[in-house]
Design a binder for these strands. Structure first.
Lengths: 140, 140
DNA sequence: CTCTCTGCAAAGCATTTGCACATTG
DNA sequence: CAATGTGCAAATGCTTTGCAGAGAG
């Protein structure tokens, strides 16, 4: 991804810190702020967690990054992709992106029926992944 | 709802506090722990917030109560009903329950394809509700 | 009399914020 | 130099927990 994209037409400056955060997220995965911090640190040793949070917020504002929050854990950040939903393992909490089919229609229909505007949706499917199922068997 | 239902076959005692929490939630709505606390207090003036949280956790464990967590706000609790999803206003954060149609199928299909078991799902549709849309117009 | 439950206050975790200094355009 | 960004540490909001006493079986 062109790290400059999205920055130029904005009031935000493209600093080393911001570029590094974006680069880490471009590496893929669903990372917590803490995890982003750890990775960016290998390059910018003195960057603070506060800056990570501030940066993630800005990248969100620019539409370059998406957040996923769930119960009992830190929010996970990923670079913005096509609209998708998440498949999450209830044990290891690993996240998988899944393409949406039909969900947008259901969401839109409901929203219209209730007079809601500026509609967005989020679907999360939770279950035990293959790896964790096997681990459970081995341990039993 | 019979407040005793669910308690008897369990290791939990039915105390005044627990009955009161359940009664408040049966009153309907999607309440934060803080809101439950405020309402229960009118009856049991010295009940603590800690007890509210502990009780909500137990009621969840018994399947009598469901939680809904979202970004940037306290979790909301409601008595367990048929599987449904939530329509949330992005401004006033009011929650509406909506019956599910087709979502379970999509979720199940995806989960099976990826080998996930013990599957559950949650769909949240977010938008601006009628009330908030009107308010926005009046203020403009 | 033992086990469970409660209130209280302290701790915990994720996130945000105030401030003084550094960096940038 | 004026505006923006940063590190640090303290503050915040929600939730959990340790403990000592109260209540239930």
């Amino acid at each position: 991804m062109d790290v400059n994209a999205g920055f130029l037409p904005s009031r935000y400056r493209l600093t080393r810190q911001r570029a590094a955060v974006l680069r880490v997220l471009d590496g893929g995965g669903h990372l917590s702020a803490e995890a982003v911090h750890a990775r960016v640190r290998s390059e910018l040793t003195s960057i603070s967690l506060g800056t990570i949070y501030r940066t993630l917020e800005i990248l969100r504002d620019l539409g370059l990054v998406q957040v996923f929050s769930f119960e009992g854990g830190a929010a996970r950040y990923e670079t913005a992709l096509d609209k998708h939903f998440h498949l999450m393992c209830s044990q290891c909490r690993e996240l998988l992106n899944v393409q949406a089919g039909g969900v947008a229609e259901i969401a839109g229909e409901i929203a219209t029926r209730h007079g809601y505007s500026d509609v967005d949706w989020s679907l999360t499917v939770v279950g035990r992944c293959l790896g964790c199922s096997e681990k459970a068997l081995t341990e039993a």
